[in-house]
Amino acid sequence: METILAVLVGLLFAISVYLLLSGSLIRLILGVFVLGNATHLLIFVSGRLTRESPPLIESGLKVAEAGIANPLPQALILTAIVISFSLFAFLLVLSYRAYQSLDTIDTDDMRVAEPHAETLPMRGRDV
């Protein structure tokens, strides 16, 4: 079972990286989204897979039964999902604002911070 999901995770990572490298802002956004899902699955599967027994303590019992799903990765992923959503929203708005300001969605043309004409660093003897 892990094998199927491991291959799935690998393929999702490959898709997201391919999208991220595209140089188009929209594909980059989609790539970030895929990357988030791939990562969540990665953490989930590395905590092992347990079919259909959620990490709940049955009423009447005081401690968890053996054989329930691993709760720790679930807790980590739960917050990760919400945070990655917030950051995804931020990224969306940032991209939108960048497009508005720079009038392009090609990341190669977004060079305000690192313009082509670089100033040369000082040489030792000029100090």
Binding site: V82, F85, S86, A89, L92, V93
Partner: peptide
């Protein structure tokens, strides 16, 4: 926090 932040983002958009 979740209601406020995400509703805020949605409204803004």
């Amino acid at each position: 926090v979740v209601v406020g932040a995400i509703a805020g983002i949605a409204f803004a958009l």
